[in-house]
Design a protein around this nucleic acid. Sequence first.
DNA 1: TAGATTGTTAATCGATTAACAATC
DNA 2: TAGATTGTTAATCGATTAACAATC
Lengths: 209, 209
Amino acid sequence: MGKQEIPDIVIQRLPVYLQALNQLLREGRGVVSSAELGHIVDVSAAQIRKDLSFFGGFGKQGSGYNVISLIHNLRAILNLNQIWPVVIVGVGNLGQALLKYQGFSRKGFEIVLACDNNPELIGTSISGIEISDVRNLAADIQRLNIQMAILTVPAGCAQTVTDLLVNYGIKAILNYAPLVLKVPEGVHVINIDPVVKLQTLTYYLNAED
Amino acid sequence: MGKQEIPDIVIQRLPVYLQALNQLLREGRGVVSSAELGHIVDVSAAQIRKDLSFFGGFGKQGSGYNVISLIHNLRAILNLNQIWPVVIVGVGNLGQALLKYQGFSRKGFEIVLACDNNPELIGTSISGIEISDVRNLAADIQRLNIQMAILTVPAGCAQTVTDLLVNYGIKAILNYAPLVLKVPEGVHVINIDPVVKLQTLTYYLNAED
DNA sequence: TAGATTGTTAATCGATTAACAATC
DNA sequence: TAGATTGTTAATCGATTAACAATC
């Protein structure tokens, strides 16, 4: 497929480029150079050109990149030309919080399923989504054709739940639980626990404020 | 200070090591080797030893690392032996969500201030925190001695708000807004927009599910 | 003592940057 | 045409890994 050889770090930068391009589009800009785009996203011009060249030559010598056309190309590369159904697993404080967040659907990710093992929650609705029983997860994931999960369960059961998700065909997990998940090859995980990120930031601060 | 020369990527791994060590502690383990710790966090044993050696020799040849003692050392390195006051700026869907999340205080981060510019929100309380007027931000940050901010405002005003925060003395920002913030040297930003992370994951999925 | 594992150095690997011919 | 900027190659930089003496 040719995908294997592109470094993960390159892929992680593409959505950031896309962000900046969308902003340029809103400002009515037609073209942008790698130097200017690099300035916006704090990446060197050479790196942007190198990253893009993994996928093709999208620019034009002398003028730069057409904003709309590069947006289209990046969206195609990242498979963003469709609405992705997503399941939220674990409807505690954080899960409920994310269910209420409107930002996903605006960007093409639709939360179509939320589940928990708490009988008090099952059957209730949050933001128009009825919380379903985690025991129905296999059938629900298959029925709704879901490949992506947001994991917001306690650390203690995160690996067990992950094993289930992987068994049921989930291929991508956004992990809010504070641990490193074990997944087989072909399943992709991004860790996003805000506490871990804050713990990185405190290193740079002066203690005993 | 000697801090300058340690790569950011090393610092980012330390909270993950700490996570694993805390779990080992809960399981009653007294010592752990770099090989076993590496297996848990999916990092090579050599890398763990190298990372730790930036800060000192915490292990013992032949047996490995004392779990409790390494936890203490990592907590000291990361400045985690204190409660850090945090401000949440922007109390929309995501900001409210994070205000209700109990996970911060359990790990030593206390949300002591939440602010917004919406008059309908100002004065109301969420999870025991009264939403204050963003116009009082300078005084509030100084009074509460806050160095860390969680930014959950719309992208359109994120840079403006960031400039204010930096002016008021904020040194670390956990940024949920979908854009790259410009900050002066000495101010640290980690980007954590879940939509950007999902957009990275879709690259690896098969389109047209 | 024998076995195990650290801390550290040198070798390797991979990512970033600099440079420039091609060309719009 | 002259000026600007891409795409790509080679050089540089930095991070990871392998190896092993030191030593518990």
